[in-house]
Amino acid sequence: MANKVWHRFSSGPHLAEALADAVAGRLDAAIKTRGAALLAVSGGSTPPPFFRSLSRRKLDWRRVTVTLVDERFVPPSSERSNARLAARHLLQNEAARAEFVPLYHEADNVEEAAKKADRMIAALPLPLDVAVLGMGTDGHTASFFPDARGLSELLSEERRHVLPVHAPSAKEPRLTLSLPLLCGAGLIVLHIEGEEKKKAFEAAFAESAEAEAPIHTLVSRAATPVQIYWAPSAAKSDPAAPATP
């Protein structure tokens, strides 16, 4: 498939710096072109070194809005909160001046929280300028888990920007940006590290794959080639960071 471009690095720290440069460059271009920039980032144990590098880049961060690719239905006080992760590692230094729009909202259930988040995301200066995605060894990306309830409907939803997700493997209910919103980003990055993730990605595109993995669906529908940033070993992360989704 030609809709993906590999960027291979010798180590996680080298990857973090290069990815921060690429994302900062795209955000700066958006600010100069339309006066604002919109960035969506993922959680897990892989992004913190990249977040810290990006937070030090010189940008007009007051014109940057940061949101999340997906989120667990937990408050920001939880160690499993992606909003907490972003606040701790990204919304620091120069990037402390950015606006942050969360996906989690206090509600009776994840469906109501998703409706609130959908209204907030719809009010942003869409489309996304940058979406930085992760991937699990099961081939999920964002919160599109292979065992998610109604996965095919979730992947085909075009009317809403934020969707509620229930999947046994996800532990908590989740909130995720819709596939069309992610696929329409100006720069789509898949940030993965380690041989296991690389093998899982390659397996998702193998002819012998029994079913189409969510990451395969996203790459095939992306409006621009997905930029895959990979290193054989991860950059040193914060031991308190939530586990990779």
Rank of each mutant, 00 (worst) to 15 (best):
A170E: 02
G194M: 01
G25V: 07
P164M: 02
I31H: 01
V23G: 00
N93C: 10
L85G: 03
P49W: 11
R174Q: 06
V66I: 03
N93P: 14
A22R: 01
M135Q: 05
R26M: 09
W230P: 03
P242D: 00
M1V: 10
H166V: 11
H161R: 07
D21N: 00
A209G: 12
S220H: 10
F73V: 09
R62H: 11
R88P: 12
L182K: 05
T65N: 06
K171L: 12
G134A: 02
A114P: 05
P127T: 06
R26F: 04
R56V: 02
V226P: 00
H14W: 07
P125K: 08
E193K: 09
E112L: 06
E202Y: 04
V132G: 04
F100E: 14
V165C: 05
G194I: 01
F51I: 00
F50L: 07
A209D: 06
K32M: 09
A142D: 12
E196A: 13
I215G: 08
E210Q: 15
G186N: 05
A37F: 15
I192Q: 02
E212A: 15
E195N: 13
L15I: 02
K58Q: 03
L85R: 09
A206T: 11
K198M: 14
A123K: 03
I188Q: 08
K4M: 11
D138E: 06
E196N: 12
F9D: 02
V132R: 07
V162R: 06
L68Y: 04
P146D: 04
I188V: 14
G12H: 11
P232S: 05
E172M: 09
L124S: 05
R119E: 15
L59P: 01
A142Y: 13
P102A: 01
G134I: 08
K116M: 06
R119L: 15
A36W: 14
E112Y: 08
D238H: 10
R63I: 08
A95N: 04
K199E: 14
L163V: 12
L151A: 04
V189P: 09
A95H: 07
C183E: 06
S53V: 10
S78F: 03
G25N: 01
H161N: 14
P76T: 01
K4I: 05
S208A: 08
K171H: 11
A113K: 06
P242F: 03
K32Y: 04
A107K: 12
G44P: 15
L187V: 15
A234E: 10
P239T: 11
Q92Y: 11
A16T: 05
L133T: 13
P180C: 10
T217W: 05
A142P: 14
G136M: 00
H7W: 02
M135Y: 08
